[in-house]
Computed example of a mutant assay.
Amino acid sequence: MTEQRYHVTGMTCGHCADHIRKEVGQVAGVSRIDVDVAANAVTVSGPSLDDARIREAIVEAGYDVVAAA
């Protein structure tokens, strides 16, 4: 299982977290998404992760990916 953490700006509440979970959850290979609004962090786990597609999904949800940690 692979894990990738992203620093995401623009999240302010649980609704933001839900929206990111919905979009990123549609990416093939993603099996778990943890969103920490207070830390501006999104951690994605799965057997095979497509970094570019995950970043696209976060942007499609309306947020900016500042960096991968």
Rank of each mutant, 00 (worst) to 15 (best):
M1A: 05
M1P: 05
T2W: 15
E3Y: 11
Y6Q: 04
Y6K: 05
Y6F: 11
H7G: 01
H7F: 10
H7K: 12
V8R: 10
T9H: 14
T9N: 11
G10I: 13
G10M: 13
G10Y: 15
G10T: 14
C13T: 11
G14R: 09
A17H: 01
D18T: 14
D18C: 12
H19P: 12
I20G: 06
I20H: 01
R21L: 00
K22N: 05
K22T: 03
K22I: 02
E23C: 07
V24Q: 04
V24A: 01
G25F: 08
G25V: 08
Q26E: 05
A28Q: 10
G29T: 06
V30M: 00
S31Q: 09
S31F: 06
R32G: 07
R32K: 07
I33Y: 02
I33L: 03
D34F: 00
D34Q: 00
D34N: 03
V35D: 04
A38D: 14
A38N: 12
N40A: 13
N40H: 13
A41D: 04
V42C: 00
V42S: 02
V44G: 04
G46Q: 09
G46M: 01
G46P: 05
P47S: 11
D50V: 00
A52F: 01
A52Y: 05
A52C: 05
A52Q: 10
R53N: 13
R53Q: 14
R53G: 09
I54L: 03
I54A: 03
I54S: 02
R55F: 05
R55L: 11
R55W: 10
A57I: 00
I58D: 02
I58V: 07
I58Y: 02
V59M: 15
E60K: 15
E60D: 13
E60T: 15
G62K: 14
D64L: 14
D64C: 14
V66A: 13
A67G: 07
A67H: 09
A68I: 08
A68F: 06
A69P: 01
